[in-house]
């Protein structure tokens, strides 16, 4: 997962909230809670970097937190909030 090129699915809208953000998928109607501002920043930046690991580095996420981020990103990928990006 860390070396995949991902993006926020085009059918997903993000809304900032006090705890982080809400993500809503207009296609499958799923609602997901992004429960930390760092997760929101990473998800918003995925598109600008070659892979997930590069995004985490660029967002200055401490490597000790990468496992947790990978789990969160995997879960968002499973619910189609994140999708593969060509290239």
């Amino acid at each position: 997962m860390l070396h995949r090129a991902l993006r926020l699915d085009p059918q997903v809208a993000l809304r900032d909230e006090p705890f982080g953000a809400l993500a809503y998928h207009y296609g499958n109607r799923k609602l997901v809670f992004l429960r930390h501002p760092d997760v929101v920043e990473v998800v918003r930046s995925l598109d600008e970097h070659d892979c997930v690991a590069d995004t985490l580095t660029a967002c200055s996420i401490d490597e000790r937190r990468w496992d947790a981020f990978e789990t969160a990103i995997h879960s968002m990928y499973e619910s189609e909030m994140l999708s593969d990006r060509a290239g």
């Binding site: 809304r15 900032d16 909230e17 006090p18 705890f19 809400l22 809670f33 429960r35």
Partner: peptide, 12 residues
Amino acid sequence: VLADQLKGGLEA
């Protein structure tokens, strides 16, 4: 924790 955060209300 999430339920506690939601109790404080949302932007919308």
